[in-house]
Design a protein around this nucleic acid. Structure first.
Lengths: 336, 336
DNA sequence: TTGTAGGCGTTATCAC
DNA sequence: GTGATAACGCCTACAA
């Protein structure tokens, strides 16, 4: 059995409250008493019971990071950034994976509702469901969204400017003389994907080109889907000369399919992929990618959350960060 | 403010204890009363405060999964497997990342000590430190180790038989007529790495070959280290004709360096890498790898932990699973 | 079947 | 500076 405050109080011959004060560095304890208490605590390897502490203080110093998918190295990087920032501020992270399942999201949300964590950061995921919306009101809004859009902007959020990212990517490909750019993006029930599409369209239009809806493909975010969509595309009526893929795993599958089909990148098809991380960097040829500002996304989201928790935020905030186009071989025209 | 048991009791005109029983599916509540209580709870979107529940019942239905490194796709797969198994049994997972730092491990261990979780699974990591050992006694041993060795086997563990894995890999390379097999493994303060080395040595000896210690290289587990060790090796006295790399990230870097140096795989150097996952599968040429039984590792570890928690385990157990050698192009001799 | 009361380990609010 | 004492929200004997 663990040793408790009460035990220490008895050993030191003082009251529980005094021990509590001493152990929490609070004023109102004599120097001698404090030292004595600290010594006893250490000798007995005392560990405060966080449950009791949380119950009494309504504060746990833990925050939940709720991840829509764990397969994405980019997301993992964001988590690591949050973790780093949290550590500095004395917070612990607990990571929860929802696998894009709403019910799981709901069940993890109860960590917040039952005060097991002081706040929550949601990374990625589809449209914001009703339970989350409800939580945004009832839970004092101790929630920050990362790379996730809600139809109504009730949430403090940190977002990547996907529209601008896609715009840059199209611009780049056009400059390299690629004319028929296919867009491989996600399902449109995810608002983030809609934004990508709009960036893509705007760039084309601003260059005086028409948008061909047949060159926009919505797929699931996994390798197989990326692979399959290429097969589908080369069987189709309109054959593109280049691809922009907006998610990591899809990018992997797409590149794989192109190479498997005996085609060359960028000679036959140029590719702009997604995510500047180990996964995409391993691919041959070196891939031009749209890189998320993962470090900043993580750091900013934690800062926002702490402001919310400490009630230092006057109104709900939204921060938009710009993705970076990292140009490598896969999108450089050889005939330029 | 959240609604509490007491509120519901008041609304239903019954005692708190009755509400508690009703909500927890415990016997001793009239059907009518139970229905009424359930209805009120639902209408008011009641969520039990898990802190209070945990404090009173000394049971949280949460388990901590403590990860030495988050960069490894293999580890992530194990986590997902644990998660899947846990969900079926009504447990939630919280994921903690230690980055191989002992102090972090200790701080996460306090989740166990303060009863915030019912048990903990440690995945990977170096030698078991003193705090963990201490915990193994005082915390009723609600700890399971995955792919981690302790000097004294106090822990219930699920292990990959690295020795056998390496044995297989060497055997395979020898059969393919590679004679000078370099081993790129981790630091020897990690007992797991020692085991790999012993498998490597045994296979050589059993084939009547001598072990050349100069062909064994210990590096950190990251890409850069894998890259650097190759540069170091080709500058050295003994040039190998093949490599076995025992960790994912090192494998990536090693392959990169080989290709960067203008060498071909397997023509100039054969490679057996580590981890059958998306990261290694993306590499060109297709890599022969030692694949961990990630699915089983996760599932077994959770089962063990639940047995420990429910005190259904008579004595400490160890399960050893066999890794699989997945043979692809990178280790097939062209002159065979 | 239901209610009462005590306790889980801590923090916070008073007095003294 | 220190000590009682009452929360925090829930569970679990035990009594009714």
């Amino acid at each position: 059995m663990q040793i408790t405050l009460k035990d220490i109080a008895r050993m030191a011959g003082v009251a529980e409250s005094t021990v509590s004060r001493a152990l929490n560095d609070k004023p109102g304890v004599g120097k001698e008493t404090r030292l004595k208490i600290l010594k006893i605590a250490k000798e007995n390897n005392y560990r405060p019971n966080q449950l009791a502490r949380g119950l009494a203080a309504k504060k746990t110093n833990m925050i939940a990071v709720i991840l829509a998918e764990m397969d994405s190295p980019g997301n993992i990087e964001i988590v690591k950034s949050i973790e780093k920032a949290a550590e500095k501020r004395g917070y612990q992270i607990i990571l929860c994976n929802t696998n894009n399942q709403e019910d799981k999201e709901e069940s993890y949300l109860s960590l917040l509702e039952s005060n097991q964590v002081d706040g929550a950061i949601f990374i990625g995921g589809k449209l914001v469901g009703s339970h989350l919306l409800k939580a945004s009101f009832s839970q004092d809004n101790r929630i920050v969204l990362v790379n996730r859009l809600a139809e109504e902007n009730f949430f403090t959020s940190v977002l990547t400017d996907y529209s601008q990212g896609l715009y840059k990517a199209v611009e780049h490909l056009l400059k390299e003389n690629f004319k028929k750019i296919a867009l491989v993006c996600g399902n449109r029930d995810n608002l983030v994907e809609e934004e990508k599409i709009s960036g893509y369209k705007n760039a084309l239009r601003d260059s005086g080109l028409e948008v061909n809806e047949e060159l926009i493909f919505s797929t699931a975010n996994n390798r197989q889907a990326g692979y399959n969509v290429f097969l589908e595309i080369i069987e189709g009526d309109v054959i593109p000369d280049s691809f922009i893929s907006t998610r990591e795993l899809t990018t992997i599958g797409l590149v794989e399919a192109i190479k498997m089909g005996g085609y060359f990148i960028p000679d036959d098809f140029a590719v702009v992929g997604y995510g500047d991380n180990i996964l995409t960097s391993v691919i041959d040829p070196p891939l031009t990618v749209l890189g998320e500002p993962v470090e900043k996304l993580g750091k900013s989201s934690l800062e926002f959350l702490l402001e919310l928790i400490n009630e230092k935020m006057d109104s709900q905030q939204i921060k938009v960060l710009t993705p970076e186009l990292i140009i490598r071989e896969s999108s450089i025209s050889k005939y330029n």
